[in-house]
């Protein structure tokens, strides 16, 4: 099966060195500005003047464009096309062109562009964050700030288990195919292939649960005492200032929504 399990690109850059929480607050500031901030072009400006320059700062621009192209363009393109064609007429809308029985209106295209650009900000801000932040770094930083260690365990353990299970799944698929299981025949055959493929995978993984429970119990998993961390994650004054700045932006974005216009 495809893909490694993190987007993270190990590289030396000032964006990589920023504290994970600061970057997370920044992502949310981008999203909230895009959805609640004023102005039709704001989401587009956020991408052009915010997210893309930051991807250069983080020296991940090539990976950023590639990931955004792979994950976002199909989604956003489809969304834009469908919504401009199918936006409900509200009577006095100006018709741009006619496709078969459907009217493409100026209002429809504007609405579609706004939605698509907002979704673009939301997902690509996360892509930028994930390209420059290792998940386990984010987890250790959040644990240090009081997130329960068990949560951090669940997230990091899952990120390790998924690739193992994917490897197991492709072994099972190969094994069952070599025994003649039809995985790309008729619909009924493909439905029939589901159980022989998932059964061994699921039961095999569930058996390991019990062993793992005993193993981590023996390593003070449920202990209430404070645990120490091997890795130190930098958190400078500049980080703190940046977080306040982004929080202020979030408040302003909500404020602009409440302001009587």
């Amino acid at each position: 099966m495809k893909d490694k399990l993190t987007f993270y690109i190990e590289r030396e850059s000032s964006l990589h060195r920023v504290n994970p929480l600061t970057k997370l607050v920044m992502v949310f500031a981008f999203i909230i500005l895009a959805f609640f901030g004023p102005g039709f072009w704001l989401p587009s400006l956020l991408v052009v003047l915010g997210i893309i320059p930051l991807s250069f700062l983080g020296r991940v621009q090539r990976e950023y464009f590639r990931t955004a192209g792979r994950l976002l363009l199909p989604v956003v393109g489809f969304l834009f096309l469908m919504q401009s064609v199918f936006h409900p007429d509200v009577g006095d809308s100006r018709v741009l062109l006619q496709v078969w029985v459907l009217n493409v209106t100026v209002e429809g295209v504007r609405f579609a562009y706004l939605t698509a650009s907002r979704i673009f900000v939301m997902v690509s801000a996360f892509i930028l964050f994930l390209l420059t932040t290792h998940p386990s770094e984010l987890m250790s930083d959040l644990t240090r700030r009081g997130l329960s260690g068990t949560f951090a365990y669940v997230i990091t353990a899952t990120l390790q288990i998924i690739p193992q299970m994917q490897a197991k799944a492709s072994t099972i698929i190969d094994a069952q195919r070599s025994r003649g299981l039809d995985t790309d025949g008729s619909f009924r055959k493909r439905v029939g292939a589901l159980l022989p493929l998932t059964g061994p995978l699921v039961f095999g993984s569930l058996v390991e649960v019990e062993e793992r429970a005993i193993a981590i119990e023996a390593r003070a998993f449920t202990s209430k005492l404070e645990k120490t961390s091997l890795r130190e994650i930098p958190d400078t004054k500049l980080d703190k200032a940046a977080r306040w700045f982004f929080l202020l932006l979030i408040v302003l974005a909500f404020g602009s929504k409440l302001w009587p216009s």
Partner: peptide
């Protein structure tokens, strides 16, 4: 311990 396996 079941939760990570379930997510996987």
């Amino acid at each position: 311990v079941l939760i990570p396996v379930a997510i996987a």
